[in-house]
Design a protein around this nucleic acid. Structure first.
Length: 563
RNA sequence: UGGGGCAUGGUGCAAUGGCAGCACACCAGCCUUUGGAGCUGUGGAUCUUGGUUCGAAUCCAGGUGCCCCAGCCA
């Protein structure tokens, strides 16, 4: 109908892919997702995942999920399953799952081919010698004394390395390029190193040598017919090497394109540091709702749609102003989450810091069923009945004995609306011996049932409530950012020093009867408070809700500003 | 210091030689049976110096600042 309406997202990578198709460099598009199975996926991974997935999809191509399992000392099967689970949750689909280790045999043949061509050699130098002879930024490296070993000897040594005849660290296979190259990656990079233990999670003890990233990754791309190998900025310097190998081998040459990684402020992505948070019990586990991992966000109540929308709206660039790549404002992610949840979540009433209200002129034993709308943003969500009676709980925040300026909520002499209930007016305040307010008394206007006054009288505030006799007690977990600093990563130990002591507050509140036994993982908006998600710790006696994200609170902002 | 990158409001991204725009945040207002949501509006940016051009965020040259690289990690 309106062809020029459809504005497709475009960026330098999509443009490059389109060009390659147009120029005939490639006749199809195939991307790959290369996670290393050594940790859980976090928000930073989502960007790369979506770029690889969507660019393939948009071009009627396919995505291969290939686990980069070239280092048995770091990788575990447990993470393979976790990564697939998280990726599926995001909505990512792949044509097939492969492993770098699937190609170990073929890769080894390719290595021998390079040896035969005189383009690779076995080096007997120790790791220290290799390092010392690599040179520095300003000085060229020195050739290894073994660099010009003849082909037969190289082949023999390589075979014996493979067979486990030599100890770890005693020899490596190196590409023979240029020890004086200004790009250090080209100074005879290591292709294989010897690793006897532990056994590999898929190939067991078959291999005693394992390929390095630079050798395995690019050749695997080539073997799989990957057209576009999209990776982060720090691989820019590896591109000459990425292109050198297939050039020598005369095999299919994929194109590598780099982009800036994604990070969030007030959190960190370092696997090592996240592990310390878990191991030192600063959080309850990898799925603690304060963690930046996808399983934590899922438990917290973030939707995959919101997370995907967030990375899409962030865009793609090559901006390189921080070692973490692009640092997104956590508030932006939260805005995306609110956007999604506002449209789709059911409204419920819950009181998280209860204050008892007694409506003195309401009949003692009367219970009325009030009509409440489930989602004003979505009429198809329908309505429900909520019980109303003489004794209610309201939010402590919704009452002040002596109200500050512009405070519209309940205070002595003031009338407010109980949402879907009645207008009530505060008549009295009851305190305990220490002066703490323990209950509030009020009168209601029977003519205002449902929340409208027939005389056209207005109130400035509407507050939520739960009938005490019908309330379900619930545990409410209120989360705040884990760190008090925007960049907790700076410094080695600094991140522990800036942990937010108030990142978790556990409250006992009351929720309306419809929330008594929620399905685990279901999401709701608690009216006027925020979005909450039913946690797996819920029991039949006591549901548990996690704060996903609060609602924007204009009054809190006003009050804060007044101070 | 050699090599590779990057510089646009507070943040993230656009503008592909032709009026610097969008989102989040911020501020003001409207509306409201959520002080929610929604709507309207304000303020605020091209790292710097020079050059080319009728015209430069964009092209050229110099400068400055920041990021990455000296793993047998990925």
């Amino acid at each position: 109908m309106n062809p020029e309406e459809e504005k497709k997202p475009t960026d330098f990578i999509r443009e490059a892919v389109a060009e390659d198709l147009k120029s005939g460099r490639f006749s199809y598009v195939r991307t790959r997702l290369p996670p290393e199975p050594n940790g859980y996926l976090h928000i930073g991974h989502v960007k790369a995942f979506m770029i690889d997935y969507l660019i393939a999809k948009e071009n009627n191509g396919e995505l291969i999920l290939r686990f980069d399992d070239t280092n048995p000392t770091k990788e575990e099967t447990e993470f393979v399953d976790a990564i697939m689970e998280d990726a599926r949750w995001l909505g990512i689909e792949w044509a097939k799952v492969t492993y770098a280790s699937d190609y170990f045999d073929e890769l080894y043949e390719w290595a021998k081919k390079l040896v035969l061509m005189g383009k690779a050699y076995v080096d007997d130098q120790s790791p220290e010698e290799v390092s010392a002879n690599r040179g520095t930024f300003t000085e060229p490296g020195r050739n290894s004394p073994h660099r010009d070993r003849d082909v037969e000897e190289n082949l023999d040594l390589l075979e014996r390395m493979k067979n486990g005849e030599f100890p770890d660290g005693s020899r490596v296979l190196r590409a023979k390029i240029d020890m004086a190259h200004p790009n250090l990656n080209m100074r005879d990079p290591v292709m294989y190193r010897i690793i006897h233990e532990p056994p590999h999670h898929r190939t067991g003890s078959k291999w005693k040598i394992y390929p390095m990233y630079d050798w395995a990754h690019g050749q695997n791309d080539s073997m799989e017919g990957i057209t576009h190998s999209l990776c982060s900025l720090e691989y820019r310097d590896h591109r000459p090497l990425y292109e050198w190998f297939p050039e020598q081998l005369g095999v299919f040459k994929p194109r590598q394109i780099e982009f800036a990684r994604l990070n969030l402020n007030y959190t960190l992505m370092s696997k090592r540091k996240l592990r310390r948070l878990v191991e030192e019990n600063h959080v309850s586990g990898w799925d603690d709702p304060r963690m930046p991992t996808l399983r934590a966000m899922r438990r917290r109540g973030y939707t995959p749609e919101a997370i995907v929308e967030f990375v899409q709206r962030m865009g793609i660039s090559t901006v390189a102003t921080s070692n973490a790549g692009v640092i997104a404002d956590a508030a932006f992610l939260e805005a995306c989450v609110r956007d999604d949840l506002n449209k789709h979540s059911l409204r419920r009433m819950a009181v998280i810091r209860p204050l008892k209200v007694i409506i003195d002129n309401y009949p003692d034993d009367l219970v009325e069923e009030m009509d409440a709308i489930n989602n004003p943003e979505d009429p198809s969500a329908g309505a429900r009945k909520v019980p109303f009676s003489k004794v209610l709980y309201i939010e402590q925040d919704d009452f002040r004995e002596t109200p500050p300026p512009k405070y519209y909520r309940l205070h002595p002499g003031n009338e407010v609306r109980l949402r879907y209930g009645y207008f009530i007016k505060c008549t009295d305040v009851v305190k305990d011996a220490d002066g703490n307010i323990i209950e509030v008394h009020a009168t209601y206007d029977p003519a205002t049932k449902g929340g409208d006054s027939p005389d056209g009288r207005k109130v400035k505030s509407t507050i939520h409530w739960v009938s005490a006799a019908h309330a379900q007690e619930a545990e409410i977990r209120m989360y705040d950012r884990l760190f008090t600093k925007e960049d907790p990563e700076e410094g080695e130990e600094g991140f522990l020093a800036c942990l937010n002591p108030n990142s978790l507050e556990i409250l006992t509140g009351y929720v309306e009867p419809h929330l008594a036994s929620p399905e685990i993982g279901s999401r709701f908006q608690f009216e006027r408070l925020g979005y909450f998600c039913a946690d797996k710790d819920s029991t039949s006696e006591k549901p548990v809700f996690n704060l996903t994200v609060n609602l924007k609170d204009t009054w809190a902002k006003l009050e804060k500003k007044a101070k």
